[in-house]
Design a protein around this nucleic acid. Structure first.
Lengths: 184, 184
DNA sequence: GCAAATTAATGATTTATTCAAG
DNA sequence: CTTGAATAAATCATTAATTTGC
């Protein structure tokens, strides 16, 4: 067989263009019926089947995110560097010599930004650790009643006037806590 | 105005990650002392004050609930859609004689490769059109809707009862498709 | 110019994670 | 707590671009 019939789908320019336009129009994860529609229409331009469309959107979306993440992390690194230069006061963070029953795996004596980027296990272990070390979650320090009045912005706070601009963000449109990546 | 000193807190990636881990570890409404602790530790990574932490947990908790609610309702919608979908038989290529309110400009009854090569306007209009005509995208937030498991070439996966007129080896695991010729 | 060699893109698979239902 | 469905992440594998030496 001299004809090695190309083991994988190769989109024609028209198919590609249409797929990209659909993507740019917001299509991300078409469902079964939608994939069938797309496939049917695109088959006018060349051989294609549903799984190709499915994979195409999967891959395109993933690689889009990937690109975005890379761009973001570069940006954040830059910010970080900038920030480290401006402030060098590692006073707090006496994680240094801490030992706890949690320490089944290596826990860094100093939590560096790099460390935080590592694996999921690290993150989760750290999450629990933060709670235990910083908050002493299980043994209360006596002053806990589930409320934290003294950390609210003290200035304009009355008991009920409610919604001093800052509190209103509950259901509004602003994305307060996100200057960085969204956690999927 | 070169220096708008950013009137509101912008969490660094590390701060965000730690907060999220604490949240995932169960912290929801830290009390005053706990907020102080968190704030002190997080200040290593950048400017932050107690109220930021307070607000962050407030907002995060609220938005979490919100997200969950939305997902639930979406899921219910999906179930309905799913049922409806099993009743319709997909019609292939009804673009030929299609008429829609979109047809304000000349839209070819058959989309030829030549047409796709035209201008940017055409392409973008077509992108939107593809979505509306082919998929009936109502697209609220541009995020994903639905799912498309049956287009995956999964091993034992069977299509659900749609006896689709146009697709034959749709879900087979066959290696497929040679590159069909395109008009280059 | 032209292929062999190398690299970048991208289609296709596999593995992990998430989330809600039972 | 377990499990099924969906999907995201990671990876494999092949094709296209491109570089390179002649």
């Amino acid at each position: 067989m001299p004809q090695v019939p190309s083991t994988r789908w190769c989109p024609t320019p028209e198919q590609l263009m249409i797929l990209e336009e659909m993507y740019r129009s917001g299509v991300r994860t078409p469902n079964a019926a939608q994939i069938q529609q797309i496939t049917a229409h695109l088959s006018y331009y060349g051989k294609i089947e549903g799984k190709n469309v499915f994979y195409w959107f999967q891959n395109h979306k993933a690689r889009d995110r990937q690109k975005l993440r890379r761009r973001l992390s570069r940006h954040q690194q830059m910010l970080q560097q900038h920030q480290m230069m401006n402030q060098q006061a590692p006073q707090l963070h006496q994680m240094e010599t801490f030992r706890s029953p949690l320490q089944q795996h290596q826990i860094p004596h100093q939590i560096t930004p790099q460390f935080l980027q590592q694996g999921r296990w690290h993150r989760e272990a750290l999450g629990r650790m933060f709670c235990e070390l910083w908050l002493r979650v299980d043994d209360g320090d006596g002053s806990e009643f589930g409320c934290s009045p003294c950390c609210r912005p003290l200035k304009t706070l009355e008991l009920f006037p409610t919604q001093s601009t800052g509190l209103k963000e509950e259901c509004s449109t602003s994305k307060s806590s996100s200057c960085s990546t969204s956690t999927n």
